[in-house]
Every structure is written in C-alpha cells, then in structure tokens.
Design a protein around this nucleic acid. Structure first.
Lengths: 180, 180
DNA sequence: CCTAACCTTTACGTCAACGTGAAGGTTACG
DNA sequence: CGTAACCTTCACGTTGACGTAAAGGTTAGG
C-alpha cells in the first residue's frame, strides 16, 4: 500500500470568491446565508478563511434555485433545507452503519422528508398552474371570439365556421392544462 | 319603463376596510399598491374616502395571488398588471365599437398580452417543476434502495426480487415528470 | 520580504414592502 | 348634536436581504 493516511482524499475546497463566481452569487450573500443558519462551510483555513466543499456547493445551488426560481424567502428555504440537512447527515450515517434495520430507518426518514419538500413545491406550482389555467381559458374565449369576428368580416357563413374550427384547434394545441 | 336614469346601476362600492377584510389584506397594503401605481380606486366619496368596485377587487385578488402564491415582487406584478389594465380598457373599447376591424385588433392585442402573462408564469412553474422532478428522482432511488434493503433483510433472493419490483412499480406510480 | 489580491469581522447604508402612530376630517347611530 | 368608528394624509419605524466601506490579517507570486 502506498502512503495514503486513511480515506482522506480531500476533494478540493474552494474559497468564498471562487464559490460565488461559480454559482452567480456574491460573497456577502453566502456569508449572510451562513449568518441565517442556512449552511456551514466545510472548514476553515489556517488563516480562518472559509472553505467550501461540493456538498456546500449543492446546498448553495439549492438555495439559489429556491430564491430565484421560486421566490421563496430565506425563512421558507430554511425549512426546506432543514430536511436537506438531515438528508446529508443521513447519507453519512448510512455509510457508517451496516445494520440493515438502521439503514432501513434512515431511508424511510429520507423518503418522508423528500415527500414534504415535494408537497411544499407542489403547492406553489398548483396555484401557479391555476393562474395559467385561467389565463388560458380567457385565451380560448378570445380566440373563439376572434374567429367568429373574422368570419363575420369575411361575410361568408361557410368560411366562417372553418376559420372558427381552425382557430379553436390552434388554441387547444398551444395549451397544456387548460382547466383548473 | 321604470325611472332608471341610464344604465347607471352603481353596483355597490366598498370602503377600504371592507375590501381589506374581504380579501385578507390590510388597508395600508392597498394604499401602498395604489402609491406604486398598481390600481386606482373606482371613486371617492364626498369626504374623499376611497371607494372600490368589483373590478378593483378582481385586481386586488390578482395582486394578492401573485404576491402570496407566486412570490412575485410588486415590480413584476406591475408588469403583469399593465397587461391586465389594457385588457380591462379593451373590454370597454370593445363594447363601444361595432367596427369589426377595430374589434379584431382589440382581440388580437388581448391575445398577445395574455400570451405574455402565460409565458412569465410558465417560466416560474417550469423551474419549480424541474426541482420537483429532481426530488422525485431522488425519491425513486431511495425507494429502490429501500426495496433492496428489505429484500436483504428478508434474506431470500426470490422474495427480494419480488419486493424490489413491487416497490419500484409503486414509486413509478406516485411519480409524475420524473425526468428533467 | 514585499506587495497585490484575497480574506476576516464589524458596522452602518439601502431598498422593498409594508407597520404604526399623529393630527385631523367624515359617517352613522342614538 | 355628540361621539365612536371609520377615513384621510403625512411621516417616521421595521424587517428581510443584502451592499458597501473600514480596519486589519492571510496567501501567492516575484
């Protein structure tokens, strides 16, 4: 065996600016998230520099996603991350035990937490989808009216019906989950 | 005909507190939205009290929905409402003209605006759905692992495979849009 | 060893989205 | 004709989520 002092691979730790640049955040934000208890850097350098590992990066990506994409507040994100934290801890515990019963318990706990996350996310999407549905309903009505109108302009009953059908079909095509 | 002085039905105007109570907002918020240009009360009383009509209520519901459900900023909401405003104006214009060409133009404009609204909303849901998808992917993996584990616990190879298949099937059932 | 570029903590500044009075006018009720 | 419960317009306070500057320590390169 070569001189490897354990399973100590040390998979590359980044300093705050590198992390910020890579993820499109500011160093300030990252420190702020730490202040708010959303994450802890994997370690510190001799000179007390914050050092981040890939788990930290995952977590930050998660935070940024929730903030930018979903418009969650940091408080809400903290809730979701609590589950995420336990999930990470469970991964460690899972790797350290070989007792099937304990492993089973860990996995089941993880499942519950993920389900909770999905519920929270789904609640938001559902309401958004409802709004989209309303908009689409209006769009369909408008499209129908427009079709009738163009038919009227054309002055021909036969052509009118054809136009109406075509327009209606087009509207239905561009639409997903029209109903709410 | 009875003595009705026009089509002047005056469909009930509410004062700010009644509106606030009905919609779950505060009077302050409603005034603030007005400050920010998100709405104008339908009228004022003799004593300069703000008076709100049902259109105002619709608008406020719209605002509250975007704020609470979607987490949009007032600035973003203003964007969406600009379209909503024009839509309301167009409804009026539409009722006042009988020129088919003008009517057609109004409807087409309305369609464009609704499409824009849907695009904005869809962008948010898409990203949320992506997150849900990730979570579901994790869930499926966990469920698989759990199945293997329970099979192991059972100690029987045959039973193990059966359990794994059953669990896998269950996971796939509860899942929509697993992939991202 | 020196210097530039990074990092640290501390602390005050800022902007959105309101909350919370203050000082006074209005409406409804008895 | 009170008076309590609403309303008005200022105007300042607050909270969340950072920005920004100060005063100093650290790290990497020449």
């Amino acid at each position: 065996m070569p001189a490897q002092p354990e399973t100590d691979v040390q998979p590359k730790l980044l300093r705050i600016q590198e992390v910020a640049a890579q993820l499109g955040l500011t160093a300030r934000s990252i420190r702020y998230y730490e202040e708010m208890g959303l994450l802890e850097p994997a370690g510190r350098s001799d000179g007390d520099y914050r050092l981040y590992d890939s788990d930290n990066l995952d977590r930050l990506r998660f935070i940024k996603g929730l903030r930018d994409d979903a418009g969650f507040s940091l408080a809400e994100i903290a809730q979701l991350l609590e589950d995420e934290t336990v999930r990470a801890r469970n991964r460690t515990r899972f790797g350290q035990t070989h007792d099937p019963a304990e492993r089973r318990a860990i996995l089941q706990d993880a499942l519950v937490r993920i389900a909770r996350q999905v519920d929270i996310l789904r609640a938001k999407t559902d309401r958004l989808e409802a709004m989209i549905g309303e908009a689409n309903t209006r769009r369909v009505h408008l499209t129908e009216h427009l079709a009738e109108l163009e038919a009227e302009v054309a002055g021909d009953r036969e052509t009118a019906a054809a136009h109406a059908r075509a327009a209606h079909a087009a509207a239905a095509t561009g639409d997903r989950r029209t109903d709410g």
